[in-house]
Design a protein around this nucleic acid. Sequence first.
DNA 1: AATGAAAACAGAGATCC
DNA 2: GGATCTCTGTTTTCATT
Lengths: 175, 175
Amino acid sequence: MTALEQRSGTGAPRFDAIDERILWLLAADARMPNNRLAAEVGIAPSTCLARVRALEEAGVIRGYSADIDISRLGFAIEAVVSVRVHAAARHELRAFAKRLLRVPVVRDVSFIAGEKDFLVHIACSSTEQLRDFVADELSGDPSVAATQTNIVFERLVADRRGQAASFDELRRWHA
Amino acid sequence: MTALEQRSGTGAPRFDAIDERILWLLAADARMPNNRLAAEVGIAPSTCLARVRALEEAGVIRGYSADIDISRLGFAIEAVVSVRVHAAARHELRAFAKRLLRVPVVRDVSFIAGEKDFLVHIACSSTEQLRDFVADELSGDPSVAATQTNIVFERLVADRRGQAASFDELRRWHA
DNA sequence: AATGAAAACAGAGATCC
DNA sequence: GGATCTCTGTTTTCATT
């Protein structure tokens, strides 16, 4: 039994206030040095490292990634493609999505409720590449009933750096 | 004049093969130590650090973030809300989106081509919070003409770790 | 589970090619 | 621009509570 599970009990793991502050800070800056992180949350660096490892182990921290401005690397075309599959293929939705994730230009796939079954977010170097992707990987697949391609002009991401917020504030937030 | 600008000329900065490999590796693992990164791309650590700093300076690297499994922190409800604003408010689309980004539950906003003007991706702790967000921040705003809320059941993100790929492979990719 | 000290390691900068 | 060297600070392990 890991440290986290011990703190949380057997069901869905729960995290204490310090874990959440660690997660919040690392979400804002994954490269924050461990000793500074420890100082921010008020524990010893060694303890802090152990908590971070436990959070990685538990899968709450899935990884760390640099946020690259891909539009400046020759990927001028971003798009969201909404896809509906035939009812008969609905049971293999996940397998289909996982196959799509292996296509280099695909960034993420979201299963949604509504008219469409999922959204595919892709980044392409040209409109030809976008067209080929939609034609060959989606429309051309017998499982696919309909697609709708929406070019993304610009994508703004919330940046919580420097904000003294927390997950708890988010949970309680209301307009 | 920075190193990058010198290499690239005055217009849109271009990056050499080493820069791109650095970006690719940091996108897969933002916490990779500088000396390991340097070894991977075959340059000295000091040179590598200078390149990384230049890429940050140039805004190609926007930041580093831990990828948190937010569904395990009490944010069970994720949704994509498609929004269309009135033609008269179209000129202040960016200002509207930037205001939305300051709302804690908002993760990102994408301007799209098509029937809707933008997509808002949000993570909420309850359906009440989702309803309040859509009612108070979107539908309640006089600029907003229409909204469509789609619950996200699951979101799968492409993981390029361990793949010996590159941005160049992506650019050339075709089905 | 948390800590503090010691050892191993990585980062920043000056200097030279 | 890139490499080498050195100094400084950070990460990690481990014995201890």
